Amino acid sequence: MKALVTGATGFVGTALCARLAANGLEVVPAVRGKSGLPHERVVGNLDASTDWAAALTGCNVVIHLAARVHVMDDTAQDPLALYRATNTETTLNLARQAAQAGVKRFVFISTIKVNGEGRDAPYRETDIPAPEDAYAISKWEAEQGLWQIAQDTGLEVVILRPPLVYGPGVKANFLRLLRTVERGWPLPLGAIRNRRSLLYLGNFVDAIRLCIEHPDAAGQTFLVDDGQPVSTPDLIRAMARAMGRPAHLLAVPVGMLELAGTLLGKRAAVARLTGSLFVDGLFLRTRLGWTPPYSLEAGLAATVASAK
């Protein structure tokens, strides 16, 4: 099997390429500019006019990871247009050319944000999509376009909607929280009683690997997670245990945290810490027989070890 991987130099792409190569697949990393990866294909800028012909030659499957990711405090004049250009138009251009090149399966990495921004009940594949921000809208539009291409061409489409992915090399908010716990600073988050789903990088690439080859994955959308939703305080405690340190949590009422977030212009950031966003990953487990190979504790241990 020969697999084209976009976003091959990114956080998930690097791990995925290594895993697929270890499993005996011929991996073709698609890159914007030369990066030195074995068998890479330079495709230049990713947009609706990108020529994928050379990169797709001989490929059986495409795993499309490349995207304009969620940008905090985006200052673009028209952010939705920018997200659509990369996440929607680029995706559909690649899928059309993949179908024309004889590719059998197209695995698209979407986002749980297509389901929504969080609620007290678990998200499932059967939910009516409720994307709110430009990033999620562009991913949802890409999903709809892919199903139309699948119908028109016979291309096998598989869509995965992950929550927050963590693991060695993670950055942004997850790394900042790790560093804060490592420093032993008290955190006013002890009174939060929420549920958040996470996805360890090793589990994610394992699920993608299965979706590449399993016959029953074709034509399906899957929510994928570690299967262990945790509260924010429990996540901090687990991080601290992985570091061999005590967790310092103060039980500040959630209402006070939300008020502080509003006053400081950080309402969305506080909502991510206090609110629930968890998934029911039963469909992936039952249809494909998938079990996450790593626990939350193992994933955090590997993440902490890499961050030292």
Rank of each mutant, 00 (worst) to 15 (best):
P129E: 07
L160E: 11
T75F: 00
G275Q: 14
V279Q: 13
V5T: 08
M256T: 09
A271E: 14
R179I: 02
A53R: 15
K266T: 03
R124I: 13
Y200S: 03
A238T: 11
P29G: 02
Q100L: 12
L94D: 04
T9S: 13
M1N: 05
R245Y: 05
V270N: 04
G275R: 14
R196M: 06
L264D: 03
E132N: 11
P129Y: 11
N60G: 15
W290D: 00
T180Q: 11
G44Q: 02
L37M: 15
G219K: 13
P131G: 13
A130I: 04
V279G: 00
E213T: 15
V205R: 04
G118N: 10
T286L: 05
A81I: 06
L160Q: 09
I236K: 05
L94P: 02
E117N: 14
E156N: 11
A305K: 14
S295I: 01
G275M: 01
A207T: 09
A134L: 01
F11S: 00
S197F: 02
Q228C: 11
V43W: 07
D51M: 02
L259G: 08
R193H: 14
P246I: 10
D133Q: 07
R241C: 00
A269Q: 15
L264K: 12
M256C: 12
R96M: 04
N203Q: 12
N23Q: 15
Q151A: 15
A101I: 05
W147L: 08
L284M: 15
S231V: 09
E132I: 14
G167P: 09
P29T: 01
I149M: 09
L37S: 10
T91L: 07
Y123K: 09
V61M: 05
V304H: 08
G190P: 02
G261C: 05
R209Y: 13
A217K: 12
I109E: 00
D120H: 14
V5R: 06
P233Y: 09
P168R: 11
G281I: 02
A121Y: 10
I149K: 08
V224G: 06
G219N: 11
A85S: 15
A48S: 14
T57G: 13
T111A: 14
S295A: 00
L273K: 00
